[in-house]
Simulated assay, not measured.
Amino acid sequence: MSFPIVVLISGSGSNLQALINQSLQGQLNVTISAVISNKADAYGLERAREAGIPTHTLSHKAFDSREEFDAALQIIIDQYSPKLVVLAGFMRILSEGFATHYLGRMLNIHPSLLPKFKGLDTHQRAIDAREKEHGVSVHFVSPELDAGAVIIQAATLIENNDTADSLGNKIHALEHIIYPLAVRWFSEGRVTFHDGKALLDHKELPASGILYNNTLQ
């Protein structure tokens, strides 16, 4: 039986497309029950419609507070009874109540090697800090921003001629590999969340999660 998930987006939805592609190819045994965006012009909504996935738009601007928006969003999500909520470029800081409601069953992907460079503009910040490498992390969502238990990271070297855009392109390619992998692990029961920690195959992962290599299955 397929594993129901709901995906939240704010933009182009390239990670959503990676999930759709692997699902169609039989590499990922999930059903994307719905795609929800806080922006009506998010291209990811078109990707979802082309794949026959129900879509919803809920503008945060229509609400007086973060908590009111999150409460309305939660109602939409929960009508699909997902086993996992996937944040795929959902550009919202979540309220504590919302994050707690989905604790242990909501994933996010962040474009840095956490705990480095939480927040925005991570590619330029990594270049400005003269880092030798940069990367991306898939983690459980916690009430604290970009601080949940990390499942998997992937890294790439920062070249002397890299710009924020070129580095971002390399990071995107890695995102499209490790996010479906983490979702698959969760759907198969291999990745779990216990006492604030991420576990893979019942073994507690280090704080930085597991580092991706192409032998991981």
Rank of each mutant, 00 (worst) to 15 (best):
Q27Y: 01
S187G: 05
I178Y: 04
R66M: 10
E46Y: 03
S23D: 07
P82F: 07
S166E: 03
N214W: 00
K39H: 14
E188K: 13
A42Q: 15
V138N: 08
S65D: 02
M1K: 08
M1R: 04
P82I: 11
E175K: 07
W185M: 09
N214A: 13
H134F: 01
Y179V: 05
E144R: 05
L113C: 11
N161D: 12
S33H: 00
A88M: 05
R130A: 13
Q27K: 06
A99K: 01
Q79Y: 01
D128W: 03
R190W: 00
D78V: 07
L120D: 09
L84Q: 07
V136P: 02
P4R: 03
Y102I: 11
G52Y: 00
E175L: 04
A88T: 05
M106W: 02
A71L: 00
K197V: 03
A40E: 14
G104T: 04
G44C: 15
L94T: 11
Q17C: 15
I75R: 08
I151S: 13
N21L: 15
W185K: 06
G26E: 04
A207Y: 05
G148N: 10
H123Y: 09
L107Y: 04
I210S: 12
D78Y: 00
L103H: 06
N169W: 00
R105Q: 08
L114R: 06
H123S: 13
F3H: 04
L28K: 05
S142A: 15
A42V: 13
D121W: 01
T55H: 04
I171L: 01
Q153T: 14
R49G: 14
H194C: 12
D201K: 08
E131V: 01
S81A: 12
A173T: 04
N108K: 08
A155F: 01
H56W: 02
N160D: 15
I32V: 09
Y102T: 11
N160T: 10
H139T: 03
S37D: 08
A154Q: 09
F69A: 02
L181E: 03
Y179N: 05
I109C: 13
S166G: 02
R125H: 12
R47P: 14
S208N: 14
H60E: 08
S95P: 01
A149M: 12
G209L: 05
D41C: 13
S12E: 15
Q217V: 11
Y102D: 10
L45F: 12
L205H: 11
